[in-house]
Simulated assay, not measured.
Amino acid sequence: MTDLATLTRLCPPPDPPMAIRWDAVEARLGMPLPQDYKDLADLYGPGAFDDYLSPYHPHGVTEFVNLIGPMPGRIREQLRRDRERGSHPVPHPPDRLFACGVTDNGEYLFWVTDPAGAPDRWPVAVNEARGPRWFTHEGTLTSFLVGVFRGTVSVPLFPRGLAGPRHRFVPSRPTLWKPGPPVATTSVDTGQIRSWARARGYDVPPRGRVPREVREAWERAHSETAS
């Protein structure tokens, strides 16, 4: 059984599947993409697994989860600065890291794009939200998701309780957004997001996941400030 078939048994996809012009997507990115990811994106579309983990998608409904939007470039620029300054460890060359997902706590998922011409061999890396820790999975994005949901891949950066017999995928609701040029931004830890949200009347828990609507509101506010 393939990893995608296992994932669909753990977490049924929505209907119907999407038809994505992958030749146009890859041309815009200037690189090939892993076949497992293309199959995953076709089948599930844009959205989030367990209201926590959102793979980037060519039809992501906001710039913050769009594979061909500005976020991969912004994040890569931040990693370059982190490495140059020595402020946070970056175990892989930043130019070899391409962001392919995000969690509600602010961890980013990356493809380690080495070798460049063999995307089906790219491992998946995860970094702590503005912290020093990294985790690398020597496998595809789909096998990573299967492992996390089955409990065979333990990511110290993720909260407990992601493994289990049942999971859900929630498709994203389209919203209007205007993609702009890539702008380097500095991400912050969840404590700063919680403080910002409480000052504006949001109800946020002191620990655990930052609610999706709070994180997206923070990202929108800081994106507008940067522009």
Rank of each mutant, 00 (worst) to 15 (best):
G139P: 07
D104T: 11
P123C: 00
L176F: 12
T190P: 06
V126Q: 00
R168E: 13
D104F: 02
G151W: 05
G180D: 10
R200Y: 05
S143D: 07
P165W: 06
D114K: 03
T136D: 08
S172T: 11
E128R: 04
P211D: 02
F135K: 11
D189H: 13
R209M: 09
P159T: 02
R166L: 13
A116P: 12
G191I: 05
T152V: 12
V148Q: 02
S172L: 05
D203R: 14
S154E: 15
R173P: 03
F144D: 03
H137C: 00
V153C: 06
E128V: 01
K178D: 12
Q192N: 13
V126R: 04
K178W: 13
G117E: 12
V204I: 00
T175K: 10
P119L: 00
L145H: 08
R198P: 13
A199V: 07
S172C: 05
L141P: 02
L162A: 01
V112S: 01
L162G: 05
F169I: 10
R121M: 12
P211L: 01
S172G: 15
F110P: 03
P181V: 10
I193N: 08
H167L: 12
P171W: 03
G164N: 09
A118C: 10
A197L: 11
G208I: 03
G151Q: 00
V112L: 01
E138Y: 09
V188T: 15
W196N: 13
V155C: 15
P181F: 06
D114G: 04
L141E: 08
Y108C: 05
V124E: 02
A118I: 11
P156A: 10
H167E: 09
W111T: 02
W122P: 02
P182C: 09
G106R: 01
L157T: 03
T140S: 15
L157Y: 02
G131I: 01
V170N: 11
T185D: 10
R160D: 14
F158N: 07
G147P: 08
W134H: 13
N105M: 12
G201Y: 10
R194D: 00
L157N: 03
W196K: 11
T152S: 15
L141F: 15
G139E: 07
F149D: 02
